[in-house]
Design a protein around this nucleic acid. Structure first.
Lengths: 201, 201
DNA sequence: CCATGTGAATGCGTTCACAGCC
DNA sequence: GGCTGTGAACGCATTCACATGG
């Protein structure tokens, strides 16, 4: 039941399953049904879920119950605070992206080296010049950063984020960040997705 | 050397390695160096690369040589044709995204159900109303679609793409697409990345 | 019969250990 | 010494097979 004893492959599947459950309108779901939707074998699905502690019955799993168990097991029940670093086209678009404020996430600040931009942009969250990053991140207990700066500044901005105490980065720059193993990084870049797709066609 | 005998984990690493090689300025690189940059063990790295056929020497791998071997092995040497489906904010932004026209990819068309939009938008590639999708995709031999339509239309648009003969989809809608196993799908959605991050913190 | 859950067996990827080479 | 490449050992995730329950 502890977060760390769930294997990485299982975690990935549970995250994906959670998404399916949240869209589902049925009150319950079976492992065979999940097999149909995902392609994973029902055995794997049952093993994954049973890692959360036997919460199935003779007619499957109760949707609501299962999703909250997954959220809890994966640590998605605590709300995480986010910040956006780099307020260009992409960054400023995310400032106004509603989904970043939910029961799970809270967008708490935006940063940019360009002081002008920080002052001019209209935003639902406070914006700060980049030199205040450490101070603000600590004060607001922000733990995840969305890195939206241009390629050339990505590495140094990431290091600054890490020094400020952040523990996870979503990286939108087309760069392989060098980060210590304690920092979790997710790269979001279309060309990579296209390549992956092409390699698996 | 054939695409299919390379295991999925190896493919993923090779894709990532390719990205590193392309940024690298050194003329050669060793497995230990790659270990430092990525965290993968040098043994794994060597096994991965040797799957492409022994192209290493006593002082490592020649950068240029290695990248082109990877591109070839993963099928990234053939140029793929792309289309964008759904020309809202996101879709129309990608119309003008230079990286979608490279030696590897060629953006060939855009589609939207809204005929007005198709006529008004300025775009470097031809735009068509959605009902022409099958015809155009076949005529231009497009094989990958970027799905940028709103959530509610994602599933039906995906099906239309598949019927038109596409074999890969990059899905930007926050939906789990139901697709036959022959179709490769990559989902790009920030909330998923954030959740994954949170689950692995 | 259809479900879940779980030890046992299988299969596959990573790691180890060493041979060969510069 | 450094490096690559590769069979052998290992470990872990998936699959199998079966016990249990409505």
């Amino acid at each position: 039941m502890k977060n760390l004893e769930i294997s990485a492959p299982t975690k990935k599947r549970l995250l994906y399953l959670l998404k399916i459950l949240e869209k589902s309108e049925s009150i319950s779901i079976t492992s065979s049904r999940i097999e149909e939707e995902t392609g994973w074998s029902r055995d794997t699905v049952r093993k994954d879920i049973s890692a959360l502690g036997g919460l199935g019955s003779a007619n499957g799993y109760e949707t609501e119950h299962l999703s909250s168990a997954i959220r809890k097991a994966l640590g998605l029940d605590k709300r995480r605070r986010l910040c956006i670093v780099g307020l260009g086209r992409l960054g400023s678009a995310y400032l106004n992206f509603g989904a970043l404020n939910s029961s799970e996430f809270e967008l708490a600040a935006g940063f940019d080296t360009n002081v002008n931009r920080v002052e001019i942009l209209s935003s639902p969250v406070p914006l700060y010049p980049a030199y205040k990053m450490s101070e603000i991140i600590e004060r607001l207990s922000i733990n995840i950063g969305l890195l939206c700066v241009p390629e050339a500044q990505a590495q140094s901005a990431a290091e600054k984020l890490i020094r400020s105490g952040i523990c996870g980065i979503v990286n939108f720059a087309p760069v392989v960040l060098k980060t210590p193993p304690s920092i979790a990084v997710r790269n979001v870049f279309v060309i990579d997705e296209l390549r992956t797709l092409a390699a698996f066609l």
